[in-house]
């Protein structure tokens, strides 16, 4: 195995193990911090798969912004920082069965479909900032602009939602 393969396997193991901890830990803040580990190792996987700019965007937006937003949400909803035993719904076993079935279908499909395909990373074009910027602004301009309008709409929606008075929805709910 080359060093790329060794690094990939290590990063994948870290990502899967910390993702399992995200969904099983009984401490809310620990779940957010394990999510940082998962997202960071996925950024490392992106680097190995020649997606340099996507990896840095992952670090900036996911590890930087999204996890901070999640921690803010935990703080603002007065989540206890200690251990909590009631974080899971009562029907954990059916949820685990569904998840295992989804995983089995996906894994068997991709392994059956692509088990003999080799990924030639030596000849892959590294998606550096200049390459990615060129493709985004030459070939994907229209989706990019649509996406910026979507971000604006989400921004306006978040502001409107957070400016709603607390008593109005409560009255509507009790009718």
């Amino acid at each position: 195995m080359s060093w790329v393969q060794v690094l990939f396997v290590l990063l994948s193991l870290v990502a899967v193990a910390s993702a399992l901890l995200v969904v099983t830990t009984s401490n809310l803040v620990h779940a957010a911090l394990w999510l940082v580990v998962t997202l960071g190792s996925i950024a490392g996987v992106f680097l190995l798969l020649a997606a340099e700019f996507v990896a840095w965007v992952q670090v900036l937006i996911y590890v930087g912004a999204v996890v901070v937003l999640l921690l803010f949400a935990l703080m603002l909803t007065r989540a206890p920082t200690g251990r909590q035993d009631d974080l899971n719904v009562g029907r954990v076993v059916p949820a685990a069965i569904v998840a295992v079935l989804v995983g089995a279908v996906l894994v068997s499909t991709v392994v059956a479909g692509f088990h003999d395909v080799q990924l030639d990373l030596e000849r892959a074009v590294v998606g550096s900032a200049s390459v990615t910027g060129g493709t985004v602004f030459r070939l994907w301009v229209l989706p990019f602009e649509v996406l910026s309008v979507l971000l604006l709409a989400a921004l306006v929606g978040a502001i409107v939602l957070s400016k709603l008075r607390a008593d109005e929805p409560a009255e509507a709910g009790e009718d």
Binding site: Q5, V16, A99, V111
Partner: peptide, 21 residues
């Protein structure tokens, strides 16, 4: 590297996310 390695990672992460949801 075989292509199914990253696809396997994606599948496992997806099913873990399904369990979390």
């Amino acid at each position: 590297m075989p292509l199914w390695w990253p696809l396997l990672l994606g599948s496992l992460l997806f099913s873990i996310g399904v369990y979390g949801v």
